[in-house]
């Protein structure tokens, strides 16, 4: 490990290659359904990698992530809906927002920044907590955000569908953002903040004895993590164009957490691998469900296979491989150990 940049470089290069490969595969397949799946995959990669920035480096499970995603999605949507459309979609919206519209790309960034600000304000006092208390309070944060989104009808259209968001997310855009998120995650992990935070994860007392300020280190990570979640939310909003608060609640939370647990939260590679694994598994099972349905093999209604599969997979992983597919080493380190043993 002569220098950090070198290692980051191999990792980033690997995922650049992988993303291009997925992109090429999409062109080869050429169907709208496949493109939709791949775009979703890239958005989920941003989400999971964002979760890894906090959860992986600090070792604290966070349920609040999808909450930050919803902030990004709504925020980006509100600012990008065309003025004419706004009076219809959100008649009670405050005047100054009513009359302004920005380009969706700018709005996605606004959403990310706003999610980061909310996270910064909400979570600073929570960063002292460890173990169960930290997990439960993060769950409470998710519920608080969800309640606000449901209740603040003037801005979010309440529990009803929020519509009129311009379609702006293409596969290419999602891929570029996704790649940027991967770079951010690797740089963060190997930065001084990342390394010290990982030290507090392994042993808080010892980390403080070498000068780490646990509370602030965790706080910085939450802010970066929420920013990425907000970006993912914005992209998703401009992809799906209409959604409601229940699009950002328990089901999505457990989906993201299952991805990071299966892949391994300590590594960025694991986060991405988890997103890939779960997406592929999901689509495969959905296909099986469809085949069974149309073949009339079973007379009663047959749904929920994907959820059962996901739960069982998560349990199997927690029992047999509790640290996931990539527990400690990034793909770059694995490649280096295998092929450049002497160097």
């Amino acid at each position: 490990m002569k220098d950090f940049t070198n290692e980051n470089f191999i990792n980033i290069l690997f995922f650049f290659g992988l993303f291009l490969l997925i992109y090429a595969l999409n062109i080869f397949m050429g169907t709208a359904i496949f493109e939709r799946i791949v775009t979703n995959l890239f958005i989920y990669i941003i989400l999971v990698v964002g979760l890894q920035v906090f959860m992986g480096n600090s070792g604290i499970l966070s349920f609040a992530h999808i909450g930050y995603m919803s902030i990004g999605a709504y925020c980006s949507g509100i600012f990008s809906i065309p003025v004419k459309m706004k009076s219809m979609a959100l008649p009670d919206l405050y005047y100054f927002i009513q009359i302004t519209t920005f380009d969706p790309i700018i709005c996605i960034f606004i959403g990310g920044i706003f999610a980061a600000i909310v996270a910064a304000v909400l979570t600073l006092p929570l960063m002292r907590l460890n173990d169960a208390a930290a997990v439960i309070t993060s769950f409470a944060v998710l519920m608080v955000i969800h309640s606000i989104v449901v209740g603040w009808s003037a801005v979010t259209n309440g529990p009803r569908t929020f519509f009129g968001v311009p379609k702006a997310t293409t596969l290419e855009l999602a891929m570029i953002f996704s790649f940027a998120a991967v770079i951010i995650a690797f740089l963060y992990k190997n930065s001084r903040f990342g390394l010290l935070l990982r030290a507090t994860r392994d042993n808080e007392v010892a980390a403080e004895s070498i000068g780490a300020n646990t509370v602030y280190l965790r706080w910085f990570a939450v802010i970066v993590s929420a920013f990425l979640a907000g970006i993912a939310g914005g992209l998703w909003g401009h992809f799906i164009t209409s959604f409601s608060p229940k699009s950002f609640y328990l089901r999505e939370t457990f989906l993201v957490i299952s991805m990071i647990i299966i892949g391994g939260s300590f590594t960025v590679t694991g986060a991405i691998a988890g997103a890939l694994f779960v997406t592929i598994g999901y689509e495969f099972l959905r296909w099986i469900e469809k085949v069974i349905k149309f073949s009339d093999a079973i007379k009663f209604e047959f749904i929920g296979l994907t959820e059962i599969f996901l739960s069982i997979t998560m349990i199997v992983f927690l029992v047999t491989k509790p640290k996931g597919l990539f527990p400690f080493l990034e793909i770059g380190e694995i490649i280096k150990k295998k092929f450049f043993k002497k160097g």
Partner: peptide, 12 residues
């Protein structure tokens, strides 16, 4: 720091 390399332990 169990999950860090020896160098990263010292570097941190």
């Amino acid at each position: 720091f169990e999950s860090l390399s020896v160098f990263d332990n010292v570097k941190s």
